[in-house]
Simulated assay, not measured.
Amino acid sequence: MRKNIVAGNWKMNKDYGQALTLINEIKEGKPASNAEIVLATPFPFLAKAVELVEGTDIQIAAQNMHQAEGGAFTGEISASMLTSIGVHTVILGHSERRAYFHETDALLANKVDTALKHDMTVIFCFGEELKDRQSNNHFNVVEYQLRDGLFHLKNEDWKHIVLAYEPVWAIGTDETASPEQAQEMHAFIRNLIQKVYGTDVAENVSILYGGSVKPDNAKEIFSKPDVDGGLIGGAALNATDFFGIISGI
């Protein structure tokens, strides 16, 4: 059975003290839920975050990593660096990495391969821009991103993959895909995977929705049969809001 997951992507927010406070608030106040909770903190806080959540069911994730094993890549972080401090989950392909840092599907495929080589779980992000949806090209964009980024994998690799559909037009804009739009796309994604990898892989991969999820809309979005949780941005920076979203699953 696929997992329900609520992942908080902190992006480039919080200083060290604020980060520790928020992690402790989430650890101590997290409501009972059947969802797996993931916190993707900035790089400087990862080791301490792993220490703080030890013994809990909270997972710590990195927001990115380099595709190389090591070398002269100033400012970059490798998979082995992450796993050496107890981080075994990484977000790859976030729309901001694609847009601001020009990450291509080919590059992301390499990153995925490196992460899997180190037995990491990958939260793989993808989604269309507003112009794609307005031109009714959104299904094609999503299909190409998945095919080019992930469809070189073997069936057994998919147990380490979590998908995160994030319509770019709904990230940080207060615009949200309707629950029906989210379900339509998630069903399309699952059907696409089924055609390529079979029913077992398709039914067991978790597909998260990311795009201005808030406590007041989370329950309706998460109630859809092919939506298995959320990749949360701004609302993950406040424990009360994050708890409200977790309670919606």
Rank of each mutant, 00 (worst) to 15 (best):
I85C: 09
V6F: 12
L107E: 14
A47Q: 05
Q134V: 06
N4W: 05
T240Q: 11
K117I: 11
I26Y: 01
H118C: 07
A7C: 15
Q18H: 11
I60A: 14
K159N: 13
G244F: 06
N34R: 01
E51N: 10
G230D: 12
M185N: 01
R97P: 06
N140W: 05
V38P: 13
G29Q: 13
I5W: 05
I23E: 09
A109S: 15
P215F: 11
N110W: 06
A187M: 11
A164S: 01
G127T: 11
I246Q: 05
P179I: 08
M81L: 10
G70E: 14
L39Q: 15
G210H: 07
M185R: 00
E28P: 03
R98K: 14
A40W: 09
G149N: 04
L208Y: 07
Y165P: 03
T121K: 14
P44W: 03
R190P: 08
H160W: 00
P179H: 06
G29L: 08
E28I: 07
M81F: 02
K14Y: 06
I207T: 14
F151C: 06
G70Y: 07
N4C: 13
H160Y: 00
K131R: 08
D216A: 00
N24R: 14
A35M: 02
S80Q: 14
H94K: 04
K117M: 13
V122N: 01
L208T: 11
Y16D: 02
A62M: 08
V162E: 02
P42L: 03
G248K: 04
K48D: 15
